[in-house]
Design a protein around this nucleic acid. Structure first.
Lengths: 160, 160
DNA sequence: ACACTATTTAGGATTTTATACTATTTAGTA
DNA sequence: TACTAAATAGTATAAAATCCTAAATAGTGT
């Protein structure tokens, strides 16, 4: 449950390297935000992270927490559950299908996959609760964004 | 791409039956909201649904659209992408894992599954974009909610 | 160790998204 | 056709996320 000391060191190191690779600074705020998200398995929302960080940095601003969370996501250090920077979206497609969510623009695409449709839920999972649906969620960069995104690609090129 | 006439009839029928089964009324607003969500595969957000519905019912209120969308979800006629009625949540667990999201309380649980870890993405999907992550999302009712939810169970019992 | 500068932050204003409330209207039923 | 519980419109309010600018800071070179 508790995050080991060694693992904490590793995490800080991952943060340092990731920031360096894109030419950004390692600030105390960024360290604390990452640490707070990393040490829990409760999937906190931005507000909860804000509260946790305030215990270490009482003057931290909510804006900083938001900026940092999205930054960490862009760096691949954390991920979000659900759509990207987006409000709830609705889907009435009654046929079995799966989703590809673009990490850049947030758009969600449906796709069919007989392979993924065959997912079956092992009995062990019934311990967690009553499963109603199972589907696969892919994350990545959609074709459209890949083609029109010089900024991101420049940043990544710096490192190489 | 276009929703066939026959399918539209089916959908209206599904709505009628679902509402009847829980003793709720079939209103014009509910028909139009459902129709608008059902006829697109663009995963509209609430605001987009509101705009679409207004073209048929200029006086419709945003509140009605929201209430109806969540109602349709509770009835199982539509689903939402991402967490339920929840803001973005963050996850720094670097180990491969999957999620169980409770449709009642919105809580997200991690779980491990060697079986799901083996998901591989067929080359065809690369047409959609560059896939970065793949994970399984289960939806259902968590153990905690199952035990403390007489309301919902009463409603479902009515039908039987 | 010190100074320099682009980056980052704090704090508050603003915008966006979602829900609450109540008088009026309506669907379903007798 | 009338009745009644349920649903809606319209507005107020709350909640969540982002924007803006002066002040502070990390990283770099000296």
């Amino acid at each position: 449950m508790d995050t080991g000391y060694r693992e904490q060191i590793n995490q800080l190191d991952r943060l340092r390297k990731a920031l360096k690779s894109v030419g950004m600074k390692l600030t105390y705020q960024r360290m604390v935000v990452f640490e707070e998200v990393a040490k829990t398995n409760q999937h906190p929302d931005a507000e909860a992270v804000y509260e946790a960080v305030r215990r270490h940095i009482p003057s931290v601003s909510l804006d900083t927490v938001y900026r940092t969370l999205w930054l960490l996501r862009d760096l691949g250090l954390i991920r979000t559950l659900g759509p990207q920077r987006e409000k709830a979206r609705f889907d009435a497609n009654p046929h079995r299908h799966h989703h590809f969510v673009c990490n850049a623009c947030g758009t969600a695409f449906d796709f069919d996959s007989p392979q993924f449709d065959e997912l079956t839920v092992s009995y062990k999972l019934e311990l967690v609760g009553q499963v109603q649906t199972a589907h696969v969620e892919l994350r990545g960069i959609c074709r459209h964004c890949l083609e029109s995104m010089p900024l991101r690609q420049e940043k990544e090129a710096k490192e190489a």
